[in-house]
Amino acid sequence: MENYLNLFIRSVFLENMVFAYFIGMCSYLAVSKSVKTASGLGIAVIFVQTITVPANYLLEKYLLKDGALKWLGEGYADIDLSFLSFILFIAVIAAMVQLVEMIVEKFAPTLYISLGIFLPLIAVNCAILAGSLFMQQKEFINIGEATVYGIGSGSGWCLAIISIAAIREKLRYSNIPAPLRGLGISFIITGLMGLAFMGFMGIKL
């Protein structure tokens, strides 16, 4: 249990997708003009991340990893399909996003309306693919860890986009030098937030 909590805190604060790896920056900058839309996208990312990371973990463990096909029989034990991981991960993500979209539309119409166009866009959000690729790199020992990592990295991204959106709402009333308005100041503020997040590095886990 403690192990899972550590992993969660590490993936939210210490290895924050945005501040430590700059992942998902495109939508982070494009959709952070108001807190409302930002939190919609953030929640959608947590949602999809929680589903795709464990799904890709299973794929990695039983199909792609070196020797993963051993369960089919001894003859398959030395097959290494890891070069296929990019294409299969992205296919799983695109399929899962479609599936999640349909399920949410059927069973939670209000959530579907509030997530709106963000759900389909998530298929090409770098944060989702990055979650799966980091999962592959970290070599988690069981699916529980992979799920926790999915939730954690999604929450970290959500936290980041909501905080920058809140700051940008306030920035509208500040007197910023004209060439720096909009994009420029967002970059610099993200940098400063990143420096602040580095303070979490001191936490012993």
Partner: peptide
């Protein structure tokens, strides 16, 4: 450190936009 990359991009944008108003 990673955050400096963001600040450098911010500065590049600043310079570019002051040249091209």
């Amino acid at each position: 450190l990673p955050p400096m990359a963001l600040i450098i991009v911010g500065v590049i944008i600043w310079i570019q936009r002051s040249k091209k108003t």
